[in-house]
Each structure stands twice: as C-alpha cells, then as structure tokens.
C-alpha cells in the first residue's frame, strides 16, 4: 500500500515560489492500478517521481507498506521499484538481454538466475527470447521497445511500479494492443502500479482507481465509475468531457447487458449469419454501440468464445440503461 500524506513540492526559482504538488492526500491499495490523470503541468509526473525520490519531497510524507521512503536509502529504494518512462529509456549501448538484466545485475543475481528471468519475462511479453537476446534497442519497433521497457521494470519482481505515460508515444492501434496486454500481465503479477496519463480513455480502461489533478491539487480520486458518474467539481466534469455517459459504456460489456435483460430469450429466432457486424461477449458497450451504428439493420450478432452465435444485440437493449441514475448503472446489470 502506498500512502501520500500532505505531500507538497515547491520549486523556488529567483525568489518565486511555484507549487507543483499541493498537499496531496490519498492512498493506493496493494495490487491496484492507480492512474494519475490531468492536463500537462498539473503535477502528476512530479508526484510520481517523488515516490522513487527522483524529486525531493518539500513537505509531507510518502509511505510504502508503512515505511517512510525518506528513511530508506534512495538507491535501494529505486532498485525495489519498477520504473517505466515514455521514451522507454532503453540503453542503446546494451543488448535487449543486458537491458532487462540491469537491476538483477545490480542486485547481485547470479548468471543462471538472470538468464531464466530473462526468458520468463520475454515469454510473458510475447517475444521470442532467443530472437531478441543479442539485438539492440534500435532494431526494435516502438511497441516492442516499450514492451522491453515494461519487462525491464518487472525484472527484479518489484512490488511497486511507476509508469510515466508508457504508451503515450505509440500509435493508437499498438497502444490499444499494449494496454490489453498490460492488463493481462497485471492479472498475473498483481503489482501496485502508479500510472501517469493524460488520456481519460486510457485511465478508464486501465485504472482500478483514478486520481485527477489540476495545478498541483488533487481534484478527485475514486474508481472510474465514481469519477464518471459523480464528478466532484467543474474541472473534473470538463476534463472527462460531456460524453462521459458514452465513456461509461466502456466499463460494461455485452455480457453484463445480457445477464440483466435478455436472458437469452431471443435465441430462438437466431438465424442471422455471422457477418461483419458482430460483437463478442467481452466487447465493451461503447464499441458495441459503434458496431450497431455501423450496421445497416441496427443489429449485431453476439458471438461467444467459440465463435458461435449467441444472440442479437439491438438499440433497444440499450434502453435498459436509460432513466437510470448514472451511479446505479453498474448495479442494475449485476
């Protein structure tokens, strides 16, 4: 668990005081992804970098599992925290294997253990360990480099990870892909992750918790559902945008909707062939809506994991969600 109590950072330059982080109080549970969200210059990156003491705390304290980070040796602290940055920061003079083994090597792991760990991590990332062992960062695509960046941060199996817009520089398709993979990996490794982002969609998708910042102050912290249904103030409302009801659909899947309303009752008239307008049970309702809008009949075939037709999704199914207070949205389908 990471606890921020009254954390502030004040930069002083030529007599002028600039408050980058202003009395932040919050905590992040173990195994949780907390996304720091906000416009640039809001202090989210500064706050992140205070956790591994790349930025000194001016006031207040940060505790990891009850231990004040100021009391720890900064080098050891950093070695026990995974760190991923936007431009991936891979070392161009080292091979992929050397890059991944930087922290294990500093921690004094023997060669055999390092080799096994390298293999394990590469397989986790879906990359062939042998193919990449002797290659250099510049030979890899942006997506591959970022995956190596994540693998490197995971190398010594740190309980806490700090990620500073790790997918920010990637194109939308690769980013989408890596976000999915990231969630899959997180399911296995269950790290406590602080994740900086300026993209509300990314935050909704990845975060168990979202903390929204503005001008160094914490505006609101809560689950994506809480933030979207109950924005605390004008800033949060503006930041998440007027289409927040549509964004909320990202949080629900077709399966959720079926469980509530359809009970498979229309299965009988299932004669539709699987055409290009189909959704799976795991498709989120936002994407499903997009498919419906594109479909000439206003219908989409729902297919299950084995690619067998399961039912039909239509606009009327969404009526289930109307007239319900946003905060109840999740409860009506579960």
């Amino acid at each position: 668990m990471i606890t921020f109590s009254n954390v502030s950072k004040i930069y002083e330059s030529t007599g002028k005081k600039v408050t980058a982080v202003d009395h932040v109080n919050m905590s992040v549970e173990e195994g949780e992804i907390c996304v720091f969200l906000g416009p640039s210059g809001c202090g989210k990156t500064t706050l992140l970098r205070m956790v591994n003491r790349l930025v000194q705390i001016t006031e207040g304290s940060i505790e990891i599992d009850g231990k004040d980070i100021q009391a720890l040796d900064s080098i050891e602290l950093r070695r026990s925290i995974g760190y991923v940055i936007q431009q991936n920061g891979l070392f161009p003079n080292m091979t992929i294997e050397e890059n991944i083994n930087v922290v294990p090597k500093m921690l004094g792991w023997d060669a055999g253990k390092r080799k096994n760990r390298y293999k394990e991590l590469m397989e986790m990332m879906g990359l062939n360990p042998e193919e990449f062992r002797k290659r250099f960062p510049w030979e890899l695509s942006g997506g591959q480099q970022q995956r190596i960046g994540v693998a490197r941060a995971l190398a010594a199996d740190p309980p806490v990870m700090l990620m500073d817009e790790p997918f920010g520089a990637l194109d939308p398709i690769i980013r989408d892909h890596l976000q999915n993979e990231f969630l899959r990996i997180q399911k296995d490794v269950k790290k406590t992750i602080l994740f900086v982002s300026h993209d509300i969609d990314e935050a909704i998708r990845l975060g168990d918790k979202i903390a929204i910042f503005n001008q160094g102050q914490l505006m609101q912290v809560g689950t994506p559902d809480q933030i979207l249904s109950d924005p605390k103030n004008e800033f949060v409302r503006d930041f998440i945008g007027s289409d927040r009801e549509i964004k909320r659909l990202t949080l629900l899947t077709v399966k959720d909707l079926l469980n509530k309303g359809k009970k498979g009752n229309r299965k009988s008239n299932l004669t539709a062939e699987i055409n290009e307008f189909y959704v799976t049970l795991d498709t989120d309702l936002r994407n499903a809506l997009a498919v419906l809008l594109a479909s000439p009949t206003g219908e989409a075939v729902i297919v299950d994991q084995r690619n067998q037709p399961h039912g039909i999704l239509t606009f009327t199914d969404y009526e289930l969600l109307t007239g319900v207070h946003p905060s109840k949205l999740k409860s009506i389908v579960h």
Binding site: Y83, I85, Q86, G89, M106
Partner: peptide, 27 residues
Amino acid sequence: VHPAIIDAGKGMGMTQKLILWKLELPN
C-alpha cells in the same frame, strides 16, 4: 546522451558511478 536514458538509469537505482561508466561514457 539522451536525458531519458539517464533518467531511466537513475530511476532504476544506478549510482552516479554506474551511470557514468555504463551509460554516459559508452553512449
């Protein structure tokens, strides 16, 4: 030497000496 490289090294817990010998001089 790209600042991101040094930042990554620092954030991973490399000492000043290691940063010089393993990152700055080779690059």
